[in-house]
Design a protein around this nucleic acid. Structure first.
Length: 287
DNA sequence: AATGGGACCTGCGCGC
DNA sequence: TGCGCGCAGGTCCCAT
């Protein structure tokens, strides 16, 4: 999945569809996917209203308002997070709609007579939903993320961050503590666009290269947003539609195919265990 | 500190 | 048709 653009699209769509609904019940068949425990999650969210959906890095943040279900405490703000990991889908359906494959959690939603379901389908069960009791608890989770590339990150800050680490540039880009929201697809695509070899040390990049990478990153992420995200095997929008950015991949999963700039063959290597695709001719070390 | 490997899980496509 | 293998949008933990 679900990298920044995909999560952002889900966030925007959910804000149009489920804000104002109350969570009336939770069904689940994989307790492991609920944190801090299935019981705490269910008790935490049941009976509360969804007042908004946000995003930080690749996390969705559902803001809740209302009385805690069982113990009936004060009316305050609480939250739950959703991480889709590799194969998660969040789908908004009507209760009578055909069950989606790999659904492991269903939040029953009500607003007056209207009823909806928010279904968490996760083929690999690596994703999770996490209930968080307070704003303070939320801040503790979000605290560690680096800046958001489409919201607040400046060219100067980007330079400073990258010049301060000797790690391979692709590793740095994908580290959520360095920059938030970049995953394997967008790291590969941005480096191709900026003509930077994925294995070069971040601190060895010139200012001109870093500025180019900053532009490339913004351009790739914005284009992905416009195209509804990248739908490979799993990613879907909230009504099940595919995004289209996969049709614009320049290097990702194009091993052996021709570079669209110079016609050289795209190579695949591994960096930190992740498939890495680049053009050996226009992304040279020491460019 | 930095790097590498494995774990967490399951599904799918490919070659034989 | 069936089986084994490699690969998959992510992140965490541990050993070296």
């Amino acid at each position: 999945m679900p990298e920044l653009p995909e999560v952002e699209i889900i966030k925007r769509q959910l804000n149009k569809e489920i804000v104002g609904y109350k969570i009336s019940d939770v069904w689940r068949d994989a307790d492991k996917m609920l944190k801090p425990s299935a019981k705490a999650f269910v008790e935490g969210v049941c009976g509360k209203d969804i007042v908004g959906v946000g995003r930080r890095a690749k996390l969705l943040i559902f803001q809740l308002k209302g009385v805690k279900g069982i113990k009936g405490k004060k009316d305050g703000e609480s939250f739950f997070l959703v991480h889709l990991k590799l194969s998660g889908r969040l789908l908004v359906r009507k209760p009578k709609d055909l069950l989606d494959d790999h659904t492991h959690v269903i939040l029953e939603l009500e607003q007056g007579k209207k009823k909806l379901q928010l279904r968490f389908a996760e083929a690999r069960k690596l994703g999770y939903m996490q209930y968080i009791e307070s704003e303070k608890g939320l801040e503790e989770v979000l605290f560690e993320f680096g800046p958001e590339p489409l919201n607040g990150l400046t060219k100067e800050e980007f330079r400073e961050i990258l010049q301060g680490t000797k790690r391979k540039i692709k590793e740095a880009l994908m580290d959520q503590k360095v920059i938030a929201g970049i995953g394997n697809i967008y790291a590969n695509e941005a480096l191709w666009l900026a003509k930077i070899h994925p294995e070069v040390s971040a601190s060895s990049l010139s200012t001109r290269q870093i500025d180019g990478l900053f532009e490339a990153l913004g351009s790739v992420l914005r284009e992905a947003l416009e195209k509804g995200g990248a739908s490979e095997q799993w990613y879907r929008q909230i009504h099940g539609e595919k995004g289209h950015y996969q049709d614009s991949f320049k290097v990702y999963q194009r091993e052996g195919e021709l570079c669209l700039r110079c016609r050289a063959k795209i190579k695949r290597i591994e960096i930190s265990g992740r498939g890495t695709f680049y053009c050996p001719s226009c992304q040279k070390i020491g460019n």
